[in-house]
């Protein structure tokens, strides 16, 4: 589904990713761990199509296509989803309009008719229940006045609405209490199927108790320094990262 080959990326002249190689197959869940400043969020943002990054070298293939050649909106329409670490507040853009436009853009891309008002409301109700998103929140502007936990739930709600093939969750667990963490994880797990993959970027092993990864990678100073199965997360929890920084 996703193949990253020797990806080197710079921001404002500073090299952040120094040659990433990663292969993700359909149905797999990969966790990317690592200390602050190792380039985890940069990787997520580059894959989602944020423009302020300079690609120095490398290639990313998504479903056989050159991902780096596509606009952010096309990547989304093709089933790539980034759950933001810091979802931005957009006063004046109502949640409902935003989600509706988003869902219908996705449908248009697939050659489907837009949802009717009734269908849309039904779908929204269903997905809101999935993540226990307070009904009132969808009457507000996008993320406006949402608590930290509500913002993260809102990301998972959007993911549930869009049903992506590849979800990249950037520190979705940060700032969540244990209940919210459980709800968010259940939302992610509910979407799991053999065709869908996920990249879970996280600091802590905690989230991986709920979203069990097939592979764990440690990103350090712009490189993947270790890859292993889910047991690596436990090892990191015990020993920290220092033993990998050599």
């Amino acid at each position: 589904m996703l193949t990253i080959k020797n990806l080197r990326v710079a921001v404002e002249g500073k090299e952040i990713l120094k040659g990433i190689n990663l292969e993700i197959k359909a149905g797999e869940v990969h966790a990317i761990m690592g200390p602050n400043g190792s380039g985890k969020s940069t990787l997520g943002n580059v894959l989602a199509g944020k423009e302020e990054y300079e690609i120095l070298e490398g290639e990313v293939l998504y479903e056989g296509q050159d991902l780096l050649d596509l606009s952010a909106e096309d990547r989304s329409r093709m089933g790539l989803f980034l759950g933001f670490q810091y979802p931005v507040e957009i006063p004046g853009v109502p949640m409902v309009n935003f989600i509706k436009t988003s869902v219908n853009e996705h449908r248009k891309f697939k050659g489907l008719e837009p949802l009717t008002a009734g269908e849309f409301l039904k779908l929204m109700r269903e997905k809101k229940e999935l993540v226990h998103l307070d009904s009132q929140l969808t009457n507000r502007s996008v993320n406006e006045g949402f608590s930290g936990g509500e913002k993260k739930k809102n990301e998972i709600f959007q993911m549930a609405m869009l049903e992506p093939k590849l979800a990249i969750l950037d520190e979705t667990d940060s700032g969540l209490d244990i209940d919210a963490l459980r709800v968010v994880s259940e939302g992610v797990n509910a979407l799991k199927n053999p065709e869908r993959s996920a990249i879970v970027i996280t600091h802590y092993q905690r989230l991986l108790e709920y979203i069990v990864p097939d592979f764990v990678h440690v990103l350090y100073q712009g490189r993947i320094v270790k890859s292993a199965g889910k047991e690596l997360a436990l090892e990191l929890e015990e020993k920290g990262y220092d033993w990998l920084k050599k």
Binding site: G49, S76, F84, V88, Q158
Partner: peptide, 9 residues
């Protein structure tokens, strides 16, 4: 970027 990342042109 947030809006574009959700498929809005």
């Amino acid at each position: 970027f947030y809006l574009r990342a959700r498929g809005i042109g």
